[in-house]
Design a protein around this nucleic acid. Sequence first.
DNA 1: CGGTGGATTGAGTGGCGTCAACCTGAGTGG
DNA 2: CCACTCAGGTTGACGCCACTCAATCCACCG
Lengths: 239, 239
Amino acid sequence: MNGEIIRKLAARDVLTDEEKRVLQQVPVTLTTVPAGQDLVREGDMPSDSCLLMDGWAARYKVTAEGKRQIMAVHISGDFVDLHSLLLKPMDHSVVALNECRVALVSHQSLREITETQPHLTRMLWLNTLLDSAMHRQWLLTVGRMPARATLAHFICEMYVRLNTVGQADDGRLRVPMTQATLADTLALSTVHVNRLIQDFRQEGLLTWKDDQVIIHDWDRLAEIAEFDPTYLNLITTPR
Amino acid sequence: MNGEIIRKLAARDVLTDEEKRVLQQVPVTLTTVPAGQDLVREGDMPSDSCLLMDGWAARYKVTAEGKRQIMAVHISGDFVDLHSLLLKPMDHSVVALNECRVALVSHQSLREITETQPHLTRMLWLNTLLDSAMHRQWLLTVGRMPARATLAHFICEMYVRLNTVGQADDGRLRVPMTQATLADTLALSTVHVNRLIQDFRQEGLLTWKDDQVIIHDWDRLAEIAEFDPTYLNLITTPR
DNA sequence: CGGTGGATTGAGTGGCGTCAACCTGAGTGG
DNA sequence: CCACTCAGGTTGACGCCACTCAATCCACCG
């Protein structure tokens, strides 16, 4: 496997050299998936999991009426559907938001890790628990906070996550999502997302041009979002 | 540990006698928690996890404005905060919805299982993955479906889950939640929940008196909810 | 230069929230 | 056995946040 996942895990606990070696020796199949294409579909019974090397991907479900809800957005180093190792069939689909480089890791390899590497297993488990924690935070903002807080929170979360993988810094990040996709993420309408972004612009909170976002006032954005990154567990501690 | 968790895990994969024995020998501390009291608080660093033996518990977060969002409701056999084994500090609180009998399992014991019992470890991991799957479904209904679908879905889900632990049958279930608590679960206002329940009554969908719910028309309720229990992974298969 | 995906704007609407009152039944104390 | 309290359920009036529908604009591209 690649170094991104090692970096992600190592941000939460120290990995031994041996463990890093084990991870590095896991065989992968590299693929590239074009924007808009599904990596996995609801109902699939995958025999491998997708490790995102580059690009953004989103997990989503669709209602009978065709309304889409994105419940997670993934970036480099995220093990998008690691849970499909144990949870089958897939209860949701995964789509590439832009062109994605993906490393497919066979469930067989992962199973071997669970048989021989207790600590690594816990770290992979942790990886899926982080998704849960993000889901919960998402539920809170979508369910109980006004729309502008939901948008603000999304930006804060993505900035912090991108920052930890070296893809955002200095208040700048790239968000390769259309406003329609953003709406499906925040459980809002496209029109409303558009108006919220304009509000934020007018308040001098940020600049948003194409996929380039520049945060001008982090503190106020975090305040609107009630953003507290604790749930991202960015602490190195024995697990 | 008690038999409930064994039953829950065994519903998803066959456990060997040896594995059952290991589980049974895990030491626990039994407690009773009165209704309304927190089992765990946001920010805590628990050294053991709560296995619910009896009663209902809910995981929740609160906004700065004091609005509460419940993101999961737990019943007998649920390992309410198993994730606190790896995810610390707690990113949310857990409250007893009615009087709960709880078995506290030390993280040390759980860690030993992860060191020596790969398959059991995967089953415990699976247990937390089920929570994720429920969170995702919750996000879809809260985010993209009308309020009556959200309520209908909640009833369907609780019925199926209670049914698998032998606490609901024949369309009957007990829901020990006030309408205010229900509102915090469904991300609605108390008033609106009240009106939805009355609508359901008038449509002959169900009877709801105190905590006693009788479903008269499962098919229509499931249709309103677009309920599909696949995400609960109620299949026995090698994991 | 027309076509296309995405962003923007305006007008009108409705689902659900808020506020506030009132009802009901169970429990409590005199 | 009644007065009181209190939690929870119910009802009505009103308002707003966010949705829908439908144009229009804009940049980019073949």
